[in-house]
Design a protein around this nucleic acid. Structure first.
Lengths: 255, 255
DNA sequence: GAAAAAATCAAACAATTGTTTTAATCAACC
DNA sequence: GGTTGATTAAAACAATTGTTTGATTTTTTC
């Protein structure tokens, strides 16, 4: 098999592997994992280590050790470290961004609620991630951390990949926010969007997201709306806040 | 000289070196930099490269090349890479945190403005950085980027250093926010503070902070209050926002 | 069941990292 | 002015990185 085959037909739905095997009779997910193909085990190990240490912090030897696989298997099956991680990122984030774009179009076609326009766009931006995080076939409970890692990763490789591959979707959301927040200049809006996206990314990347989710409101409808109930007003208030004049701020404390 | 001397008396005020030499007659800061001692050149090169690439992305060879210095000079003068960076970080951030603590105490002694309590604390948290950024002896115009890099750096070494060294100051601010925002649970407050600190850090670390500062309000009083005029209402609104119920959010968009 | 293809393996490669060594040079001091 | 100590220099060290090689095993195919 050519080492580049995956890049031609990348969609494997690889989380389904483990689910199928565990259902079939194996006791633990760990046992099931040892029965997967070498190629699949590499991908699972890569995801697990990327969650913990990011792109640059994850060596191929760490991956092959975790996967119980020979070192050369990575280059044989995936070509290179970059191609391996590109495949992993696309596999995970392509469905996310497709869902985001679809929901935004649906919302625009249906029309906004005048009062909660910003919150609606925020919800459209984050609900797909939460939905996928609850779908064990697509992402599973670690999916939020995965997103956070990906969008907060400092390596040029990951940043460029995300910027190029999801530029169109990002632009659509930016335009939607711009229409909902006409009092902000393009400059202001870009800065505030960077703020909230950075903040959400690093929060999701932190190890205790689930603890946070679980600790907010025990009586919530479900995890999705619980976390959104938490984030939306916070982010919405930040985006909506008026620009204060310098004189107003100077009065707050003497320099 | 013992390679650990710096750790005993770390305060050298090293930006003053260049300022003094440029004033003395050398034309450019670059020329002045070549006349500094080997030890000082290493520190300057380290700062410059840390600004661009963070801790792990900056190799000792890159530093010694930039400083026009032999590779072994780093370990000779500073002991190790970690000790070198620890010294740099302390040199820059100790004054910042001392100023923050001092201003917060002064504000608490003087009493808060009832209406703008949160904004006052935010201003106290960020004004010292802006003031130091305008002081060429202490930080200079790149200081904001330095802060951003330091607080956004993903390496364990930098994170642990900051967490341990400035734990007391951080706790005081957290308590001040807690008193100003009694409607938030400790959990809520911790999460929102993480949000805004992460967001501010990564924004400051971006390369175009000065462009942003310059582009906001040309007619502003000065850079400090301009940037704060920009940040304070944004961050204040985020901290102050009420928690919405899950049901309210679910109504915003059909899952 | 033999031939062909795919997959696995141990080993080495080339490049980079932080660190150390050993010798040469410089500066200060008596 | 020679001796001592501090500094600089070139080189090598040991460990890690991603990648490749070439032989061996496993699997597929006819």
């Amino acid at each position: 098999m050519s080492p580049f085959e995956n890049l031609i037909s990348p969609s494997t739905g690889f989380t389904r592997d483990i689910a199928a095997l565990t259902a079939a009779g194996s006791t633990t997910a760990n046992e099931a994992r040892t029965k997967l193909s070498t190629k699949a085990r590499i991908l699972h190990a890569t995801e697990s280590l990327f969650l913990q240490r990011g792109y640059e912090g994850t060596s191929l030897r760490a991956i092959t050790t975790e996967a119980n696989v020979n070192l050369a298997a990575v280059n044989y099956h995936y070509g290179s470290k970059e191609e391996l991680f590109a495949l992993l990122l696309q596999e995970r984030l392509d469905p996310l961004n497709a869902d985001r774009a679809k929901r935004l179009e649906a919302l625009q076609a249906k029309g906004f609620d005048r009062e909660h326009r910003v919150e609606q766009i925020i919800a459209t931006l984050f609900l797909p991630a939460l939905a996928l995080a609850r779908d064990t076939d697509q992402g599973g409970p670690d999916f939020l951390r995965f997103i956070g890692r990906a969008y907060a990763d400092p390596s040029d490789f990951v940043r460029n990949l995300l910027a190029e591959r999801y530029a169109k979707t990002n632009l659509k959301f930016k335009q939607a926010f711009a229409e909902a927040l006409p009092h902000l200049s393009e400059h202001d809006l870009a800065m505030r969007l960077n703020f909230i996206l950075d903040a959400v990314s690093s929060t999701l990347a932190s190890e205790d997201v689930r603890r946070v989710i679980g600790g907010i409101q025990p009586s919530a409808v479900n995890d999705d709306t619980t976390l959104l109930a938490y984030l939306a007003p916070f982010l919405g208030a930040a985006l909506r806040a008026n620009v204060r004049t310098a004189a107003q701020i100077a009065a707050l404390q003497t320099l």
